[in-house]
Design a protein around this nucleic acid. Structure first.
Lengths: 171, 171
DNA sequence: GGAAATTATTTCAAGCTTAAAATAATTTCC
DNA sequence: GGAAATTATTTTAAGCTTGAAATAATTTCC
């Protein structure tokens, strides 16, 4: 079963005839990807229908909610794993919406500190509660033990990827 | 360890004081997401550097490679789990590049059949080989058994999501 | 103290993506 | 056969995303 297809080959033949076959890894990656897409689409839909907000904006607010003192833009872009230019526009739109507050940092004139406004925080907390329960609902069929295992193996996958890519640190 | 935080609560207290806490599910979702982003960024970078192609175009070609007789646009959008309008533009660009061929379907004048051109197929096969080995490299630290378990649990997660969302079928 | 390197952010152009509305063809069902 | 519903695709407007180049401020290191 480990090899998916129904080729009439015994274990030895497999090794001989397909010396560097990596179809299984590929399938794993595709499954990870489609799992993410499926869940993400649903979350995006619910955020729009219930709160009229986009997922990127919600994600950005989630980071700021964890940093009451505010965050630098570069810090945001690292945490959200997106480009700098992306954050600039996203923050612009959230500031316009009145959900974010943007101020120059005290010691460094290159840096902007961004934080949630009172309204932004109130608004985020409401959405976050719903969001958290949606996720729990969507993943509802996984047992606690399934969840733990998944968590551990995804951690291992991340570590493996980081090792290859060469950025051992960060989040 | 299953609860992550270091709160000084025994098991009973937890249940009593946090009747519907779903932080673990949330963490699992965030880890799935970041794992995907990490791998995807690297793949995108390598596709660009080595073959000067984008990931969405590569993904689309991958679907067509599996369907020598061609595919309808709607089929593509289902398989890739993206909107219809998305496919229209993506196909346009690939046709312009000479990698795809687009022809009206024989029986239904609403439908377009898209397939790889000879060049598209040749080009895709080369890229696909590299791509497959990149994925294997990136996931290299996962044992065969880890991979099987991940595959199974992600399948379970997908099934759980589909059940909630109400689209039990498809891919 | 000042040149050179680094760091933080913005701008830019191109492409991707979505949701919703529009167009067009086919199928269903009286 | 024709109205109504369904299906396939395109168009549109808005927003997201990237990578690269540009700008600006700070730090490093003679």
């Amino acid at each position: 079963m480990g090899n998916g297809t129904a080729l009439p080959l015994d274990a030895e033949t497999k090794v001989i005839e397909r010396p560097s076959d990596h179809k299984d890894e590929l399938r794993l990656w595709l499954r990870l990807f489609s799992c993410k897409t499926l869940i993400e689409s649903e979350i995006r839909r619910r955020l729009r229908d219930n709160f009229d907000i986009t997922l990127p904006r919600f994600d950005l607010m989630a980071q700021l909610d964890k940093a009451p003192a505010g965050m630098k833009l570069g810090e945001l872009s690292q945490r959200l794993m997106v480009s700098n230019g992306n954050i600039t526009g996203l923050v612009d739109r959230l500031v316009t919406q009145g959900l974010l507050d943007r101020q120059p940092a005290p010691n460094d004139r290159r840096t902007q500190l961004v934080k949630l406004t009172a309204e932004g925080r109130r608004s985020f907390r409401t959405m976050a509660n719903a969001h958290e329960s949606w996720i729990a609902e969507i993943l509802g069929e996984l047992s606690a033990s399934d969840q733990e295992t998944l968590m551990r193996l995804l951690g291992k996958a991340k570590a493996s990827a980081r090792k290859t890519i060469g950025q051992g640190d960060a989040r």
